[in-house]
């Protein structure tokens, strides 16, 4: 079993503090949803955990099974078992999906002699047309096809913990269902259940992907955590309940007040 522990994480972008003390623990087989309004720091959280340049961690730690993730370059984080499904998957002209998978598997010390066959099998599971396997990465793919391609790579690489950055943005309902169900399957895998950190603005992802825990991220902090019903409340009342007042409540009275509000 694996465990991603984000602890007291502070990060700045261009000198501005975006994350202001994030604590989250995701274990194998768990599905956590982090929800928040625009500007809450959702994408910053995924970027920082994966090591994208342009973000500076000023305090806190991120560990995967006790190993210091922040000390690793991006590719080693991936090899160690983290995977980022991107909100806007980058187009990489002229680079074939197969070649990237071969190199990514080789870096993990995995055999890569039947990558094509694996890709075809995985593509079938999520309704990704086989002809798209031969396109350069994300080039000339629709929003839905890009997310299917992301999900395909997730299934190929079998990470321990996956971060889904707005998986539900820019895709149609069929693609959303196909992608979410595959992620759900992976998280229920009896041998190596995937841990999932799903970052999303909207509830619609969560109708397909059943979260065990829902966290509300506002202004760089988790201001509330609870079960799936928290997302339902959010759907009804919006983020206003969490964004009243300029500052999120310090841990203590304010946070426990929110706990009361959302307790079963």
């Amino acid at each position: 079993m694996s465990e991603l522990v984000i602890s007291g994480l502070h990060a700045t972008v261009a000198g501005r503090e975006i994350l202001r003390g994030v604590d989250l623990t995701i274990r194998s087989g768990e599905v956590h949803a982090v929800m928040g309004p625009n500007g809450a720091g959702k994408s910053t959280l995924s970027a920082v955990v994966m090591g994208r340049s342009g973000y500076e961690v000023t305090a806190g730690s991120v560990t995967l099974d006790g190993e210091d993730v922040l000390a690793m370059p991006t590719w080693q984080r991936a090899v160690a078992g983290l995977h980022l499904v991107m909100q806007y998957p980058t187009e990489v002209p002229g680079v074939a999906l197969r070649d990237v998978m071969v190199e990514a598997l080789a870096a993990r010390g995995h055999a890569s002699d039947n990558v094509r066959g694996q890709l075809v099998a995985e593509a079938a599971k999520i309704g990704f047309e086989e002809r798209f396997l031969d396109r350069p990465l994300n080039v000339d793919l629709s929003g839905g096809e890009k997310k299917r391609n992301e999900t395909l790579q997730l299934a190929m690489l079998r990470p321990r913990i996956a971060i889904l950055d707005e998986l539900d943005s820019g895709l149609d309902i069929d693609a959303l269902r196909d992608c979410s169900r595959r992620v759900e399957e992976l998280s229920n895998d009896p041998d190596e259940p995937l841990g999932v950190l799903a970052i999303t603005h909207y509830n619609r992802l969560l109708t397909e992907l059943k979260p065990d825990k829902v966290h509300i991220l506002v202004k760089g902090r988790i201001v509330a955590s609870g079960g799936p019903e928290l997302a339902t409340t959010l759907e009804t009342d919006g983020y206003a309940a969490f964004t009243d007042g300029d500052e999120p409540a310090e841990s203590g009275a304010g946070a426990s007040g929110l706990d009361d509000l959302f307790r079963m």
Partner: peptide, 12 residues
């Protein structure tokens, strides 16, 4: 582009 490939575990 570099980040995308590295985030899959491809060395720099």
């Amino acid at each position: 582009q570099r980040f995308y490939l590295e985030s899959r575990g491809v060395p720099p």
